Amino acid sequence: MATEALPPLAEPFADRRQQRTADELGIWLYMATEIMMFGALFLGLALYRVTWPAATAEASRHLLKWIGAANTAVLLTSSLTMALAVLAARADRQGRCVLLLLATAALGLAFLGIKAYEYHDEYTQGLMPFAGPGFPLQERGTELFFDLYYLGTGLHALHLAVGIVLVGGLALRLLVDRALLPDRAVTVAVIGIFWHLIDIVWIFLFPVLYLVAR
């Protein structure tokens, strides 16, 4: 079985394996900071749910669960295409890797498009804080739910937009320079880790926000 190629050596590393280990350690340290940030958000949502159970249920009933479910399916599919892109990069199948990366970016754009539709629907109902018609819910504490909802989904959408730029940019670079693989397979893998984190965050956001009324 052929071994996976390592990235070109750069200073100040002594060898390529040391460089690859540093690359992987760097992305995992970055992921740890992201987990702490989103962990604080989930802690806030948990405290809110305990403090305002009736408001949580009332507010959650006004979210479009079918949209949340559709976006969950889109992101899970994008995780599959991203994982297959990493495998293709390691196998030096550049054309297949490019197609899978473009598919991943397209699925990310589809998620944002669906989310934009949902935001517009919430805006027309007056559920968006400080925008649109007057807030329609009378239950005390429901407006705070939507503050946390937009904070969480907005942060997630921002990270997803960054991921789309990274994945799409890498696909275009591989399309132009066909000599990059398999030396840059580790780059595909590192971006893949970031993409999977975005998916995992949504997998937690979906039930916490959309399904608590059930």
Score class of each variant (00 low, 15 high):
Tyr119Arg: 02
Gly134His: 02
Leu107His: 02
Leu87Gln: 14
Val98Met: 04
Met36Ala: 11
Ile67Asp: 01
Glu139Leu: 02
Gly163Tyr: 09
Ala70Pro: 12
Tyr48Glu: 05
Gly152Leu: 01
Leu144Ser: 05
Ser60Ala: 04
Tyr149Phe: 15
Phe145Cys: 00
Thr33Trp: 08
His120Arg: 01
Gly113Tyr: 08
Gln138Pro: 07
Ala106Asp: 04
Leu174Ser: 00
Glu139Tyr: 02
Tyr149Thr: 05
Leu107Met: 07
Leu45Gln: 05
Gly154Cys: 12
Thr72Phe: 04
Asp147Ala: 07
His62Glu: 04
Leu80Glu: 06
Leu148Ser: 08
Ala103Val: 15
Ser78Thr: 10
Gly163Cys: 12
Leu84Asn: 05
Ala116Met: 15
Lys115Asp: 11
Ala57Lys: 00
Val74Thr: 03
Gly163Ile: 10
Leu112Ala: 13
Leu75Ser: 08
Ala55Gln: 11
Thr72His: 09
Cys97Pro: 01
Glu122Ser: 08
Ala54Val: 06
Gly152Glu: 01
Thr142Trp: 09
Ala83Trp: 09
Thr153Ala: 08
Leu63Ser: 03
Leu112Tyr: 12
Leu144Ala: 05
Phe130Tyr: 15
Gly39Lys: 08
Leu63Met: 08
Tyr48Ser: 03
Ile164Leu: 02
Asn71Arg: 12
Phe145Asn: 00
Arg173Trp: 03
Ala103Gln: 14
Thr77Trp: 13
Asp121Arg: 04
Phe42Cys: 11
Asp147Tyr: 12
Leu63Phe: 10
His156Asp: 11
Met128Leu: 04
Phe130Arg: 15
Phe146Ile: 05
Cys97Tyr: 08
Pro133Thr: 11
Leu148Met: 07
Val167Asp: 04
Ala106Phe: 10
Trp52Arg: 01
Leu148Asp: 07
Phe145Ser: 01
Ala83Asp: 06
Met37His: 12
Tyr123Thr: 07
Leu64Ala: 15
Pro133Glu: 11
Phe145Ile: 03
Thr81Gln: 00
Leu76Pro: 07
Leu100Tyr: 08
Arg173Thr: 04
Glu58Arg: 01
Leu175His: 06
Leu112Trp: 12
Ala171Cys: 05
Gly68Cys: 06
Ala88Gln: 14
Arg49Glu: 13
Leu151Met: 05
Leu84Gly: 03
Met82Val: 09
Arg93Thr: 14
Ile67Ala: 01
Gly108Tyr: 07
Leu151Pro: 06
His156Cys: 13
Phe130Met: 11
Gln94Phe: 04
Glu139Gln: 03
Thr33His: 07
Phe42Trp: 12
Leu151Arg: 13
Thr81Ile: 03
Leu144Arg: 02
Ala88Thr: 14
His156Leu: 14
Gly39Arg: 10
Ile114Asn: 07
Gln125Cys: 10
Ile164Lys: 01
Ala131Met: 09
Val86Glu: 02
Val167Leu: 06
Ile164Asp: 00
Ala105Gln: 08
Val50Asp: 13
Thr77Tyr: 13
Ala40Asp: 00
Ile164Gly: 01
Gly169Arg: 05
Gly169Cys: 05
Val176Ala: 14
Asp92Ser: 15
Phe146Tyr: 11
Pro133Tyr: 08
